[in-house]
Every structure is written in structure tokens, then in C-alpha cells.
Write a protein that binds this DNA or RNA. Structure first.
Lengths: 203, 203
DNA sequence: GCCGCGATTGGACCAAAGGCCAATAGGCGC
DNA sequence: GCGCCTATTGGCCTTTGGTCCAATCGCGGC
């Protein structure tokens, strides 16, 4: 794996602030990409590596909160650190509820800013690690895994997928091997609740 | 089960506001207890039923945020909805990071206030349900459960506890019966994995 | 003192999970 | 066509999990 440096995506309509932030973060060893508007950022192909957003709240067009709401639907979205000029408390609360890592006020203290960026990248790293372990799975294996973490037994999974119990065992073994989970408990934790409201026994 | 009404604990040093909130929430069918200071609330024996805190931020002595920090250590603490007079964004962000359900500004809109209270009580209900299922377990059963959700096999658990595999099986069966979990996966989700804390920031 | 409950263990038995070896079939790229 | 990967299934055997029945021991309560 290439060890690309973490990338911080700065989105702010204030040119001078944008450049100042870029200097600061570059000096810290981060790769930096800057955008003067959310639209400009959205035009960029989505980043799938280690990184985070440093996002201004008030901007013409799609503002920071709107961008967050739009990105929040995607579980693969980058963590967001907000920078606000003159935002109010309801805005900050809404942002935090939607999963923002932090919500800083301008002028932002360098120390706080870097701490927030660090936290965001940490969250992203955990996110990527979780995905990476599931990425190697084939569609069938993913399907079997989904049912396994719902608590179904091999026999039930086989019936539901219209295949043999033997085949399920094979897929299951592959899932354990590829994800690196050493026990069913570990697998369940890896995929997080996995199943929603589905309960075995009724079928 | 006795169907006690949900209780809202109002902590605010403003007498008239406290009474106004009490009237509003009583009219909504909630039981209400009011306190003029965090110290007065702390003197009260902890509530173990359905309820939440409606907490003012700025108060003489221990303020709202300090109380939250103090209570947050306890996993059994009541969910908190903040009410702030003239707090700033960093305070609201800190409160949300520590798991506050919401952070409202005075004067609070009745609709928003009731929605926040409702959300807090919902969170509390889920919290209680989780606890209730673990409450019936004996110390030994809890111990076995802890190791089970860590992914250890019966034999390993037996060795670690210095007992027989047979005994572990019995305890394990009791755990499944008392918690109502119908599969290992369900049990793991119930107790959250043993190593992970909780996830504040979830919508 | 007797009873109930939790913790402990035993044996027997069945169901489920997992490992090992082998095989067939379809799709994809060189 | 040949090789590789994925999905599929088979058999065989071992380990593990789960259930039923039965028993001992200690502790707190009636």
C-alpha cells in the first residue's frame, strides 16, 4: 500500500483565510486541496483515502451545513471539521448531531484546529479500516455474512439463499479469513449491528 | 410493570423560568421535579427510571456543563437537554461531544423543547431496556457473558475462570435465557462488544 | 431445621460449526 | 484453448455448542 499523506480539503470562500490555512496544514505535513465553494468541491471526484474536510459554514450557494447534510447520507463520507465566522448555536448543534467532528469559531486557534483535524483523520482511519476488511469479500460472501451477523444458522441461511449448508460453510469460512475476524463476536462488532430489525425464528 | 410517567428534572436558577417550564411539561403529562442548583439535584437520590434532565448552562456553583462532565462518567446517567441563556458555540459543541441530546437557546420554542425532551426520553428508554436485560444476571453469569462476547470459546472461558467447561455451558445458557438473546450475534449487539464504549454523535 | 437459589459438576446425546480433500461449472483475460 | 477466480457441492472427521436429567454444596430466609 502506498503511504500517501493525509489530505485536508479546505472549503472556504475567503481567499486569504484559505491560503493561510493551506500554509498551516502544509507545514504540518498534510496534503491540501482548496476550494472556494462547495460546488467546486462536489465537482471533484470523491476522495477514497485518508482525509477530512475543513468546511466553512457561511458561503454563497450551497453552504457548509447543506453540504454536510448532503454528504451525511453516504456512510463513506469524509469526516467534517467546521469553521464558522458568525454562526449561531443552533447551527453548531445541528452540525454536531449530523456527525461533525468539531465546530470551531473564527479566528480558530492553531492548536485547536490541528487537534480537530487530527481527530477527524483518526475517525476516518477507523472508517477506512472497517471498509478495507469488507472490500475483499465477493457479493455472495457479503450476503452470507449479512445473514450470519443477524444470528441465523447455516441451515437457515442455506434455505434463504437457496443453496446448500455446505456452501454456506465455505463462504462463511472465507468471510472469517478475509475479514480477519477470529470469532463470530468479532465479526458482529466489525460490521456493527449488521442486521436491522430482522429476527430469526419467524421464517 | 408499573407505568410511572416519565420524569423531567429541571435544573435552573431562574425561578420564574423554572415554574414556567414545570407548567408546560406537567401539562404534557410528564412528572416534573425542579431544582434551583446542580447541588440541589445532586443531593437527590439518583433516578433509575424513565426520565431526563433539562439543564441550564449558566448557574452559580457547579454549572450545567460541569454537572454533565461529572455525570457522563456513569453509563447509567440520565440523558441531558441543555437550555442556555447566553452560552457560546464552544460550550454547545463541548456539550454535544459529551453526549447531550440537544442544546437549546433561551427563549426556547415549546415545540423544539418538547421534541428534545421526547428524544432524550427515547434514548433513556433504550438505555433502560438494555440494562433491564442484564440486571437479572448473577455475577458469575455476567462474567461468563463478558468473555463470551469477547469471542472466547467455552473451554477457554472455563480455564480462565478456573471452572469446568460444563459449568460454563450452564451459565451461558442462563445468560441467553435471561437476556432473551436468541443468538450469539444478538447478545454481542446487546452488550456492545465489551471493549467499545458508546457512540455519542449518532443521530 | 427446612427450603430455595446460585454455583458447581457429571453423563449422555444431538446439532452445529469448522477443517481437509476433491470436484464440477461458468466467466474473464491472455 | 488455457489458466485463474468464484460459486457450487460432496464426503469425512473433529471440535464445539446446546439440551436433558441428575446431583452436591453453601448461604440467606421462614
Amino acid at each position: 500500500m502506498a503511504e500517501a499523506p493525509p489530505t485536508v480539503f479546505i472549503i472556504d470562500d475567503d481567499d486569504s483565510l484559505r491560503r493561510a490555512l493551506e500554509r498551516l496544514l502544509s507545514a504540518e505535513g498534510y496534503a491540501v486541496e482548496t476550494f472556494a465553494s462547495t460546488e467546486a468541491y462536489l465537482a471533484r471526484p470523491p476522495h477514497d483515502g485518508l482525509g477530512c474536510l475543513l468546511l466553512d459554514v457561511a458561503m454563497p450557494g450551497i453552504d457548509g451545513l447543506a453540504l454536510q447534510a448532503r454528504l451525511a447520507r453516504d456512510a463513506d463520507a469524509l469526516p467534517i471539521v467546521f469553521l464558522s465566522g458568525n454562526a449561531d448555536i443552533p447551527a453548531s448543534v445541528r452540525a454536531m448531531k449530523l456527525g461533525a467532528v468539531d465546530f470551531l469559531t473564527k479566528p480558530a486557534d492553531d492548536e485547536n484546529l490541528l487537534a480537530a483535524i487530527g481527530a477527524a483523520l483518526g475517525r476516518r482511519a477507523a472508517q477506512l479500516q472497517g471498509q478495507a476488511r469488507l472490500a475483499a469479500l465477493s457479493a455472495r460472501e457479503r450476503e452470507v455474512m449479512r445473514l450470519v451477523v443477524q444470528g441465523l444458522r447455516n441451515k437457515q441461511i442455506a434455505a434463504q439463499l437457496g443453496i446448500t449448508e455446505k456452501t454456506v460453510k465455505v463462504h462463511r469460512a472465507h468471510v472469517m479469513e478475509k475479514t480477519g475476524a477470529r470469532s463470530l463476536a468479532e465479526l458482529v462488532r466489525l460490521v456493527g449491528g449488521g442486521g436491522t430489525g430482522h429476527q430469526p425464528g419467524a421464517v
